[in-house]
Amino acid sequence: MAGSGSAHLRGDEALLSVQDLVVEYPTKAGTVQAVSKISFDVLPGETLGIVGESGCGKSTTGRAVLRLDRVTAGRIRFGTDWIEQIDEKHMRQLRRDMQMIFQDPISSLNPRRAVKEIVVEGMTVAGAPKADRAKKSSEVLDSVGLPPDRYSDVLPKALSGGQAQRVAIARALALNPRLLICDEPVSALDVSVQAQILNLIEDLKAEFNLTVVFIAHDLGVVRTVSDNVMVMYLGKVCEFGDSVEIYEDPAHPYTRALLDSVPLTDPEKGFAGPALEGDVPSPLSPPTGCRFRTRCPNVQDRCVTEEPEMREVRPGQFAACHFPIESIRKTSTPVLSKQL
Rank of each mutant, 00 (worst) to 15 (best):
P185E: 10
L200D: 01
P105V: 07
D227L: 02
A7K: 00
D249F: 02
V120C: 04
N199H: 14
I215S: 07
L210D: 06
L259H: 04
D149R: 14
E117N: 11
H322D: 01
T211H: 08
I215P: 10
E312L: 00
V140F: 13
L204C: 12
R302T: 11
R150T: 04
V221S: 01
L175A: 15
K89I: 13
L276W: 00
V191C: 04
V212Q: 00
I86P: 10
K330C: 01
E202V: 15
R256C: 00
Y25N: 03
H322T: 03
D183T: 06
R95F: 09
C303A: 04
D153K: 12
Y233A: 03
A134H: 09
S59M: 05
T72W: 04
H322L: 08
A29S: 15
N228L: 05
L43W: 03
I169L: 03
C296N: 05
R70Y: 15
R293L: 02
S226F: 07
F102Q: 00
D87M: 09
G220D: 01
V213T: 12
R10E: 15
S192M: 12
I169V: 14
P283Q: 10
D279Y: 01
D12N: 13
M98Q: 03
I50K: 00
M230S: 12
P263M: 05
L21A: 13
T255K: 01
A134V: 13
F318V: 12
H90N: 09
E139C: 12
Q33F: 03
G5R: 02
L146S: 02
F323N: 09
P156C: 05
P253L: 04
Y254H: 10
N110A: 09
Q33A: 10
M91Q: 02
L109G: 03
S160M: 09
P253A: 13
I328T: 11
K269M: 12
E121K: 15
E312Q: 15
A320C: 03
Q194P: 07
P287W: 10
P185M: 08
V144T: 10
I181N: 02
A7P: 07
L179K: 06
L219G: 02
V193W: 07
